[in-house]
């Protein structure tokens, strides 16, 4: 068990298995909120399901509608358990902020230090604390 820290953009507690993306993802045109599946045909993690997992990605890209897709995924119950970023992504955080405003629930969104980010691998069990503390076990 390793303890790491992140800066909460949207604070909250959550836990799940990590899904580490090799490339940035635009949620609009990249994630189907009906199924929670990655649908970007050029993305290395095409076909993976993010629902209930701790989604680890460098940063978002592309469409400014990523916030809408995250909100819709929260409404439909297909959202990731948490989102961990290497770089600040305000549009992803925005989806969380508005989900909390409308539905009183949202996946926590955190920006990690490079060292913490690099330590994460797909399949690891990650627990996110409300204060930004991460507990990781393989």
């Amino acid at each position: 068990m390793t303890a790491l820290r992140g800066r909460p953009l949207v604070a909250g507690a959550a836990a799940g298995a990590a899904l580490v993306l090799d490339e940035p993802l635009s949620l609009w045109g990249g994630l189907d909120p009906e199924t929670g599946e990655i649908i970007d045909r050029r993305h290395p993690q095409l076909g993976e399901c993010v629902t209930g997992r701790v989604l680890v990605l460098p940063v978002g890209r592309g469409s400014s509608s990523a916030s809408s897709i995250l909100l819709e995924a929260v409404r439909l119950g297909t959202a990731p358990a948490a989102i961990l970023l290497a770089e600040l992504d305000a549009i992803l955080a925005l989806g969380g902020v508005v989900a909390r405003e409308l539905y009183d629930r949202a996946p926590p969104v955190l920006v990690l230090e490079p060292e913490a980010y690099r330590a994460l691998r797909t399949g690891m069990r990650v627990t996110v604390g409300a204060d930004g503390e991460l507990a990781v076990s393989s």
């Binding site: 909120p33 400014s64 509608s65 809408s68 897709i69 819709e72 508005v98 409308l102 539905y103």
Partner: peptide, 17 residues
Amino acid sequence: VDGCLFHGDSGLEFAER
């Protein structure tokens, strides 16, 4: 404003609120 494109009921709930 880009929020006027329909992506699901959540965006409609937001705008109508």
